[in-house]
Simulated assay, not measured.
Amino acid sequence: MSEANAVRPEVSTSADVTLVARGITVTAAVEVSTEFVISVRPHGEGTAWKTSVKPGDSVELYWVSGYEERTLPAKISGVDEEGDGVLWNLAATGPAERSQRRRAVRARAEVPVTMPWSDGMLSGHTVDLSEAGLRALVDGWGLPPDDGSTITVSVALNERTVHVRGEIVRHTVQGPRWLLSIKLLDVAESDGDALRRRVFQALREERAAAE
């Protein structure tokens, strides 16, 4: 990641804004990002809740930079109403740091997966991926695993294959294939870092394709 992107989000990207006093988090588009001001346009219907914030309100800003999520404490310095939209102007109140919030970033990513099941091996690919879980479409045979079953999942990433333990959250039979939603359990730090790098790579590729 570049040093600039580590301390401020990029223009034309998305960021999460947590309104500290209300304990709610909204997604917003970054329209201005300088040392002195960050202007974001919150998404969502209606304008009353968007304009009810006032100068001095504390917020926390979160964005993806490189292989990690960053956070910056800030306050509302102004609210600009523009027709049906609104722009929140933020002023930093402290330095940017690596985010510690307990939220796994998820991305659409198709990578090979295998998992032993019922004296055989299921194989397929992920539909989406995070460091905390994944959805995988696999070639099914026999009876699908029950929800709550534990399973070992091997995920082929760019630099290596990680082997993690997971729990089946739900399954859907789609003809000869199964869509498995899996929560990952007790992921080692190095495996979590590798998964997170692949997730952020997918997010960057998705953003580049949309430009």
Rank of each mutant, 00 (worst) to 15 (best):
E81M: 11
V40W: 02
I151V: 12
D191K: 06
V64C: 04
G175D: 11
E31C: 05
T172I: 12
L185E: 03
W88I: 10
S181W: 08
Y67P: 09
F200G: 04
E10R: 15
G133Q: 02
V59I: 14
R102M: 05
T71V: 14
D193T: 11
E211T: 13
P145T: 03
T152M: 09
A188Y: 02
S154Y: 05
A96I: 05
T93Y: 05
E31N: 11
H125G: 09
V153Q: 01
G142C: 08
D128S: 02
R135C: 09
R135H: 00
D146Q: 13
Y67Q: 13
L157Q: 10
P144R: 15
E68R: 11
R197V: 07
E110I: 14
V162E: 06
V173H: 02
V11I: 13
R98V: 15
S14D: 15
P112S: 02
R22S: 09
D146P: 01
W141A: 07
G120H: 01
A202T: 07
V164S: 02
G192T: 05
V30E: 10
V79T: 05
D186K: 14
L122W: 09
R160D: 14
T13Y: 08
V153T: 04
T152H: 01
V32N: 01
E10V: 11
R135D: 00
A21Q: 02
M115H: 01
V138F: 07
S123C: 03
G124E: 06
S14P: 00
A210D: 02
Y62T: 07
A210Y: 03
R160G: 11
A74Q: 03
S154M: 12
T13P: 09
S130L: 06
A28H: 12
V138Y: 08
L143S: 14
A104N: 11
E60K: 05
L19Y: 06
E159N: 13
S65I: 10
S2G: 13
A210E: 12
T150W: 00
L203V: 14
E35V: 13
V32C: 01
A6V: 04
E81C: 07
L129A: 04
D191F: 06
T114G: 06
R204S: 12
E206T: 08
V40L: 11
D186T: 14
S130V: 05
P9S: 06
T18E: 14
V153L: 09
H43G: 10
V64A: 12
V53D: 00
A104V: 06
V173P: 00
P42W: 08
T34W: 02
I151W: 00
L87N: 05
V127L: 09
A21N: 03
S12F: 14
F200N: 07
Y62L: 08
V59F: 00
S130F: 02
T25M: 13
V30D: 09
D139Q: 15
I24F: 07
N158Y: 13
I182F: 03
T25R: 15
V162P: 03
P55S: 13
L129E: 02
V30I: 10
S12P: 12
G166Y: 02
E131N: 09
S190C: 05
P112V: 03
G192N: 06
